[in-house]
Design a protein around this nucleic acid. Structure first.
Length: 114
DNA sequence: ACATTGACTAATT
DNA sequence: TAATTAGCCAATG
């Protein structure tokens, strides 16, 4: 290594990205969590980031993980892929609201400490 | 260094 | 219940 090997092997942004994806991968089928909850879990490890940062990561690198299990605080999947997300959620039996357009977080919410 | 932009949230109306 | 507003945080140009 160089004399100064104090520069991160992984850029902070990438490190943050990995941490977010690691959490999302653990969300069980048929359940869901929120950007805010993921952000808290990540912040516990890295000490930074908020819901919007999680959103950024998902937008940029969310394919590859069960992104449809991450919804906003109101239970709505990302508007961009609303239909695809709802189809997935319905398919895996995730509790939805009566109108079937949002996740019923009261029943479906999952926290990373499980 | 400043402005803009987002797969956000909580409070308000 | 839905729309609006202000606050939020880091990436980007």
């Amino acid at each position: 290594m160089t004399a100064r090997d104090d520069h991160p092997a992984v850029p902070p942004a990438e490190e943050y990205l990995d941490e977010v994806l690691a959490v999302v991968e653990r969300v069980p089928s048929g359940r869901a969590t929120t950007y805010g909850i993921v952000a808290e879990a990540v912040a516990e490890v890295l000490g930074r980031g908020g819901p919007r940062q999680v959103g950024q990561v998902m937008a940029r690198a969310g394919s590859g993980v069960p992104w449809w299990r991450v919804v906003n605080a109101a239970g709505s999947p990302p508007a961009r892929h609303l239909d695809r997300a709802l189809a997935e959620l319905r398919a895996e039996g995730c509790p939805l609201t009566r109108d079937g357009r949002r996740v019923d977080l009261r029943r479906a919410v999952w926290f990373p400490d499980e």
